[in-house]
Amino acid sequence: MEIIRAEKLSYDYVSVDDDGKEQGRYRAVDGVDLDIEKGDFIAILGHNGSGKSTLAKHINALLLPTEGSLFVDGMDTRSEDEVWKIRQSAGMVFQNPDNQIIGTIVDEDVAFGPENLGVEKEEIWRRVEKSLKSVNMWEYRSHSPNKLSGGQKQRVAIAGVVAMQPKCIVLDEPTAMLDPVGRREVIDTVLELNRTQKVTIILITHYMEEVIRADHVIVMDQGKVVMQGTPREIFSQVDMLRHYRLDVPQVTLLAEELRKAGLDLPKGILTEEELVMELRRIRKGNPGTQSREPRLKKR
């Protein structure tokens, strides 16, 4: 069953002057059709200004479509009565860890969502414990968020969303302001949630390494969905990705260059292990190629 469906979704940013007269329009999202299945891990890629964040804000009903419509778990985001239900079904984690933590103590921040939903006290405590444990931050429950690292803060923010028991979590570039260690922590946490609790994950990012483990990748450019497929399908089209000003994981790039140089490698290699395996295969099965290569270089 699909949890999110977008039909011809478009959104215009309208700039107005002091009298409220329209000055100009900028179409950030342009006729996007989207179907996201329950339990999937979706990655949305795109360089700055491709409309990916704007699209994400629609899923949480923070923005409403200018044209077309978006359904979250069967609810139209335009219906005002269901806004709070939609926000509970689709949680959102933002980019800046400092600007989304409301509580002055970790557990209080995690409780903020359930408190807004009017959940009973005992249930709040249960949820706080469960969600903090699911992001491995339970030991820090009575700390001040100011004393945590970026990755830890972001995990607290994720716990805060998990405590609302959403069916789907949208992460809008959650790792953009983190160091590599923090990035790994956050992505591992998200994957774990997706695997163990079957939460649908929509990860918006421009780090290719984070995309590899997704079930499905969507590439956006100028407000349109331009590529869709499994990570392997997407990354086998290196030239297309370059055209949309996106990077490719280093391993994929190396494999692609080797393939162009005449090595018999498959398209869309994503991990180092895969590349090593393929290279071993070539060496064993086709010794001729291997011995010819160095000679070529000598010339």
Binding site: N60, L62, W84, R87, Q88, G91, M92, F94, N99, Q100, I102, D107, E108, A111, F112, G113, P114, E115, N116, L117, G118, V119, E120, K121, I124, W125, V128, G160, V161, M164
Partner: peptide
């Protein structure tokens, strides 16, 4: 962020 987490004023709010 507060709105995304369902904040809509003090009404109907419970406390941890």
């Amino acid at each position: 962020a507060m709105e995304a987490r369902g904040y809509h004023g003090g009404e109907g709010r419970t406390k941890m």
